[in-house]
Computed example of a mutant assay.
Amino acid sequence: MRIEQQPAYVLHARPYRETSLLLECLSRDHGRLGVVARGVRRARARTSRAQLEPFRPLLLDLLLKGELATLAAAEDAGLPARLHGDAGLAGLYLNELVVRFTSRQDPHPALFDAYARTLARLAADEAPGWPLRRFERDLLEAVGYGLQLDAEAGSGLPLAADGWYVYQVEHGPVRCPPGRAHALRGADLLAFAQDRRPAPEADLALRAMMREAIRHHLGGEPRTWQMLAAMARR
């Protein structure tokens, strides 16, 4: 199948044979794709290796046959997201989540849009915490693990803005005393559901909630968490 002018980002690249690269790409209409970029490590390649770096919006022409696609052409679709320092680590985390939560050739247009928005936020020098929480939420929603953020577990009653809840991954928000570890106010969960930033004092509990959800669905921890933990300590 011939695919032309497909919006995509490179998530990961590794050497393949003597002069080529094997890419993992996130495309808008075809999901995650394994792509063989032949000859791009040659000195005079038509498509340069630098053009296939992560965080760069691309339009790809591909020939998809079986498990892998072959790169026919690549052109820039905008300016690359310049991610430095902590933002760069956050970008690597996004890429790992996409690779581990998706299967090849399983389209998730909403995830592609969320990924592009998050790169723009990180490149705009936003502190990484809130953009990462939004992306984690949107990723889980896109792949079928959406969080219940507006109703109590079991009863289905609307969350009380002044109530306190602990989030149980298999059930949802459960009422708890305000002093409970990682407890969140109903107002903060509702704000998160509506894409409004919760109160700053909720940041740590929100991070713990999302980490538990990701750990549960992955069956383990992303490798980039150790780097992000070091970032948080700084």
Rank of each mutant, 00 (worst) to 15 (best):
L23T: 03
E24T: 09
E24C: 03
L26K: 11
L26F: 03
G31P: 05
R41I: 09
R44V: 08
A45Y: 12
R49S: 15
A50E: 13
A50F: 08
L52P: 09
P57W: 04
L59G: 05
L59R: 06
L62Y: 01
L62D: 06
L63I: 10
L63M: 07
L64G: 01
L64V: 14
E67N: 12
A69H: 00
A69S: 10
T70G: 10
A74E: 10
A74K: 00
E75C: 14
D76T: 13
A77E: 06
P80M: 06
A81D: 09
A81L: 14
L83K: 00
L83T: 04
H84P: 01
G88V: 15
G88P: 07
Y93P: 00
N95I: 08
E96R: 09
L97K: 08
L97Y: 04
L97P: 06
V99L: 15
V99K: 12
V99I: 15
F101I: 07
R104D: 14
Q105W: 14
Q105G: 05
D106I: 13
D113N: 05
Y115G: 02
A116N: 02
T118S: 01
T118I: 06
L119M: 11
A120I: 04
A123P: 08
A124M: 08
A124V: 01
E126P: 00
P128M: 15
P128T: 13
P128H: 05
P131V: 09
P131N: 04
L132P: 01
L132V: 15
R134M: 09
F135A: 03
F135D: 04
F135L: 07
R137Q: 08
E141L: 10
Y145D: 11
G146T: 03
L147C: 13
Q148T: 13
A151R: 15
E152Y: 01
E152L: 14
A153E: 04
G154L: 13
G154F: 03
G156V: 03
L157S: 14
L159K: 09
G163N: 06
G163F: 10
G163R: 05
